[in-house]
Computed example of a mutant assay.
Amino acid sequence: MSGREGRLTVDGERAVLTFERRLPFPIEAVWSAITDPDERGQWFGATTIDAREGGSIEMVATGPPLPDDRKKMTGRILVWDPPHVLEHEWRQPIVENGVVRYELRAEGDATVLRFTHRGLSVRNATGFRGGTAAYLDRLGAHLSGAPLPEWSNSRD
């Protein structure tokens, strides 16, 4: 496991962020939280998804406190394999174009989520690391019905 704060790996001028979280919920519940626009909107941000390989995804994250047009993420869905893999492009004005991947593996009554974001510069990956950990904390809270931590409070 890569720990709560994830792992940053450098490959030339680009970096990869990798997080693994063991979530005590069935794989279908985790898949739904990640891919259902209504659920995703509760813990991550307003989302629209054309749920298929080749479809599109758009999202405006709840944080950071930037104008929506700066933090709006768009992309094409590269892998759609319910309930195991969602991979999509991550195009956002504040960072380099990249790819994010959610891989889910059932482990008993729980699910192991492996999240990767590749294609970022080392500087931006370092900056995204805390925010990504915070949003994964929010995902866990959403699944358990707990109050969502503010994305910025989880970063310290």
Rank of each mutant, 00 (worst) to 15 (best):
E28F: 02
I49D: 15
R52V: 11
G127R: 07
W43I: 03
V95R: 05
A134D: 00
I49L: 15
S154T: 12
R101V: 02
T132Y: 02
E5F: 08
A51H: 09
L148N: 00
H117N: 00
E107H: 08
T62D: 15
H84K: 13
N153H: 15
A46R: 12
L8Q: 09
V16H: 08
G6P: 06
E5Y: 07
T111F: 08
R105E: 14
E28H: 05
I34F: 07
A134K: 02
T48C: 13
G45F: 15
A46P: 05
R40H: 13
T74I: 15
G127T: 04
S144G: 04
R21H: 08
G119C: 00
T126A: 03
T126M: 08
I57C: 13
G127K: 08
R4W: 11
V85G: 12
V30K: 08
L8R: 03
K71I: 10
W90G: 05
T116I: 03
I94F: 14
N97A: 12
W31D: 07
Y135S: 00
P93F: 09
L66S: 10
M73R: 10
R40W: 09
L8H: 06
I94G: 10
V122H: 04
L104C: 12
Q92V: 13
Y135C: 03
W151G: 00
I94V: 13
P37F: 00
T126Y: 09
F128Q: 07
S56H: 10
I49C: 14
G140Y: 03
G63T: 09
E5W: 15
P64L: 04
A141R: 05
G140Q: 13
